[in-house]
Write a protein that binds this DNA or RNA. Structure first.
Length: 250
DNA sequence: TAGGCCATCTGGTCCT
DNA sequence: AGGACCAGATGGCCTA
């Protein structure tokens, strides 16, 4: 596959990871060790004796994220990591690895460390989780996505609420007649609490809350014809419910 | 023990 | 030519 080939957009509503995030998942892992800045036995300075080439030139733990600390190098049997053994056929065709490959490995490691640092920075600005749980990479990205969307939606609704004579929009085709076709004051309050309240509620996993927002967006986008502003909002409290999975709807 | 997550190595491809 | 980016492969650690 071509590296530059644009990846097909992942449907967050159907992927397995999305499902994990859509529910109040028990996967809120309390990665105590990781939160402590170490992972497993990652106590080395990242020296990997690759392929028995002697000096790896690889002392460069260039970016310990503090959470994803470098791990213990792969077990080296006879100066060769198992993965190297498995990759022997591929390696042989390009002759013995030289400094170039080693440097490339170093750069790649550094690049991934930078990526992890950026993810950590992202985690820091996201609402804190109630417990010492660390979002996984995919969870961080999706949470950020939903969080941004929820904030945007909050602003949009605030703007809409501020216009007393905002035009009414027709109910979307196929919408529930009982559903509101505009956001009333009460609904706005409910929506506000449903969105922003989750940030500060220690009893609510914000990932779930913003997944709710994400679900709402999906629903709206699926129901609204192009160019028509979404008008159907039906918030229901999802924080503090016994089972949030069954309490929200759109 | 299986599954999830992660770090790392690696070779291919694209870009400068 | 060399760096950046990417995805596959692999193995370690952790949790249910």
């Amino acid at each position: 596959m071509s590296p530059k080939e644009p990846c097909a957009p992942t449907d967050l509503r159907t992927s397995r990871d999305a499902v994990t995030l859509c529910r109040f998942s028990p996967t809120v892992r309390s990665r105590v060790k990781e939160a402590g800045g170490t992972l497993g036995t990652g106590d080395t300075g990242d020296t990997l004796g690759t392929g028995g080439t002697g000096d790896t030139g690889d002392t460069g733990d260039t970016g310990d994220t503090g959470i994803n600390a470098p791990r213990k190098p792969l077990a080296v049997a006879g100066g060769e990591a198992p993965s190297m053994i498995n990759l022997r056929p591929r390696s042989e065709k390009s002759a013995p690895r030289g400094r170039r490959r080693i440097k490339a490995n170093d750069r790649e490691r550094s690049r991934m460390h930078n990526l992890n640092s950026a993810l950590d920075a992202l985690r820091r600005i996201l609402p804190a989780l109630p417990e010492e749980a660390k979002l996984t990479k995919i969870e961080t990205l999706r949470f950020a996505h939903n969080y941004i969307w929820a904030l945007s939606e909050t602003l949009r609704m605030a703007d809409q609420h501020g216009h007393a004579h905002a035009p009414e929009y027709p109910a979307p085709v196929g919408s529930d007649p009982g559903s509101p076709t505009s956001v009333s004051s009460a609904e706005w309050d409910s929506a506000s609490s449903a969105v922003s309240g989750c940030e500060i509620s220690a009893a609510c996993d914000p990932r779930n809350c913003y997944t709710f927002a994400h679900q709402m967006k999906c629903k709206i986008l699926s129901r609204e014809p192009p160019g028509v502003r979404p008008v159907t909002f039906y918030f229901k409290s999802i924080c503090g419910e016994e089972d949030p999975r069954n309490t929200w709807r759109i």
